[in-house]
């Protein structure tokens, strides 16, 4: 038996890459299994995505004065912004909320005493839900596109890459909020709620940045432009709409989104690890 491993209390457990992957796969399967017990929730989620997109598309129609090109462009801008919004919401909510549930059930401490890899454990909490959500978003977009007479979809490959990097970046935010949930407990939900609305407005998820600029250019220059989330929304949307991005040139936006997608999960996990370690040292991990 390896002394170093024994010291860390891992017993006979393997700590290799395979174990990490197995942890991820097993926990993701468990999450899926839990979700499969609630089939109505699946149907409700799909219907909800469809309804939200349709509501805003119809609102766009009411403002467009009958111009079909304008309807198509702005409906697309709104619908693609919504996709980013729902991925952000799920990432922020799901990881933190499932940690909170483990706290309330009293299983978080036992889980953390097991040799399961923490990173795999955290990612598995969101993987299944996020995969389902993305599939549902694509379905919802297709359905709305059919209803609204077509949404613009240029550079689909690049758009998907931008979405992948965006999702990876959001994972980092999700990790931070998982840590915040351990610290703030019930109040963290409120913080997540508030942040959701903050990003919804200042990252212009349901309207172009020009609308914020009309209110005050300072909002875009000093708030929106400081948020990596804004660049994710802008890049994904502009790529699919085939229009120039509003916040910065293409190459700058790609660099920002790439850096966000790669660095955010690492930084987020470090923050989570630090908060979690502190909670363990204080003995407050299982407290709720």
């Amino acid at each position: 038996m390896n002394d170093a491993v024994v010291n860390r209390g891992f017993g006979l457990a393997r700590l290799d890459l395979r174990q990490r992957f197995e942890t991820f796969a097993t926990m993701a399967r468990k999450t899926l299994l839990e979700y499969s017990r609630y089939p109505i929730a699946f149907a409700a989620l799909f219907a909800q995505i469809f309804l939200i997109i349709l509501l805003f598309v119809l609102t766009t129609v009411a403002f467009a004065g009958g111009d079909p090109v304008r309807i198509s462009t702005f409906a697309g801008a709104m619908a693609y912004g919504f996709v980013v919004n729902i991925i952000l919401s799920f990432t922020l909510w799901e990881i933190g909320f499932s940690i909170r549930e483990e706290q309330v059930r009293g299983t978080l401490e036992s889980l953390y005493l097991s040799p399961a890899n923490k990173f795999s454990n955290l990612v598995s909490r969101i993987f299944a839900v996020l995969s389902i959500t993305i599939v549902m978003c694509l379905g919802g977009l297709a359905l709305v596109s059919a209803v609204a007479g077509g949404l613009p979809a240029h550079n689909v490959g690049k758009g998907l890459l931008a979405l992948l990097l965006t999702t990876s970046g959001f994972l980092g935010l999700g990790f931070i909020f998982a840590g915040v949930t351990i610290k703030l407990k019930e109040t963290a939900q409120l913080l997540v709620n508030g942040l959701q609305f903050f990003f919804m407005i200042f990252s212009a998820m349901f309207f172009p940045f020009s609308a914020l600029r009309n209110v005050s250019p300072a909002i875009v220059d000093y708030i929106s432009a400081m948020l990596p989330v804004s660049y994710c929304v802008d890049l994904f949307r502009s790529t699919l709409l085939g229009t120039p991005p509003e916040l910065a040139p293409w190459n700058v936006e790609w660099v920002i989104v790439l850096a966000f997608g790669l660095l955010s999960p690492l930084i987020g996990y470090l923050v989570y690890d630090r908060i979690e370690r502190k909670a363990r040292m204080e003995g407050s991990l299982g407290e709720y």
Binding site: A62, G66, M78, M200, F207, A211, N214
Partner: peptide
């Protein structure tokens, strides 16, 4: 949300209001 969306779609808030009431 619809106020900002309307202004962006119609070009100005007054145009958004006019289009909205007409539609």
């Amino acid at each position: 949300l619809p106020i900002l969306l309307g202004s962006a779609v119609a070009g100005s808030e007054q145009a958004a209001a006019a289009n909205f009431f007409s539609y």
